[in-house]
Amino acid sequence: MEAVHVDPQLYDFSPWRGRPKVRWPGGKSCAVWVAPNLEFYELDPPANPHRKSWTKPHPDVVGYAHRDHANRVGHWRMADVMTRHGFPGSVSLSVALCDHIPEVVEDARQRGWEFFSHGIYNTRYSYGMDEAQERSIIEDSIATVQRATGQRIRGWLAPALTHTPRTLDLIAEYGLDYTCDLYHDDQPTDVKTASGRLTAIPYSLEVNDHYGFFIYNMSPRDYADTLIRQFERLAKEGEAQDGPGGTVMCIPLHSYLIGQPHRIGPFEEVLRHIANDGRAWIATAGEIVDAWREQQP
């Protein structure tokens, strides 16, 4: 049993009131980034002792086929809608997708999207890995994405949100700039790591399409309304005289959910709304982290 800590000592406390103001380019009040999860799930993965891959005995036909819809159908629908309204993706990538379905990865690359790692497969979890094993999936991620896209990954979203206590230290040591795994703020925050510099960029579970449709059981139009309310509030606080300055809104997506025919139409209206509002700085995760870091002492 490794040591556990009641306080993970991730970052310094900083209340919403009285912070130095964050400024976004062009005086925009809310940085909006879209994070499509481009994933590959295995039909018959090996068992991790800490978490089951599928809730049913393999093959979990509905679980697997639903996620496979993303690569055959959903991605193409979602990506076209994003491009039409000027939203680049910052891709949370199961890097084995580069091997299995390079067509999807290449499409994202040609659209000018940014890639970060979401592990090898979304059916392989970090729970229980030793340091050498965790280093190997980080090194695999860096090399695989470099080979497939020419990009050096700058960020990490733990595979299926599975961590070890050393994950943040390791990705900082390998020179990654941002983590999407911490949900404590609506602005970027530096994370305490053993070496290097790691910034937590606001991702979101609350307005993640997975939460919207499978935790909160929203209809497509209710989810669209939720995203618009999230944007309206963050844009308003971001322009307040006595506020914290520019905020960050992330829209995390899974195209097997948002790319379904009853959902994509209402979602397109969200992107149209945000793009037409005038207060949004539509950016990638890396651009947001860079702009924020330039303002830090």
Binding site: M1, E2, F40, E42, L43, D44, P46, N48, P49, A96, D99, H100, I101, P102, I120, Y121, R124, G128, M129, D130, A132, Q133, S136, I137
Partner: peptide
């Protein structure tokens, strides 16, 4: 603590699907 080494082997990692 560590996982069985086979957990980091990917015998079906190849172009196309992971089944036939």
């Amino acid at each position: 603590m560590s996982l069985d080494p086979s957990y980091l082997e990917y015998p079906h990692r190849r172009p196309g699907m992971d089944h036939a």
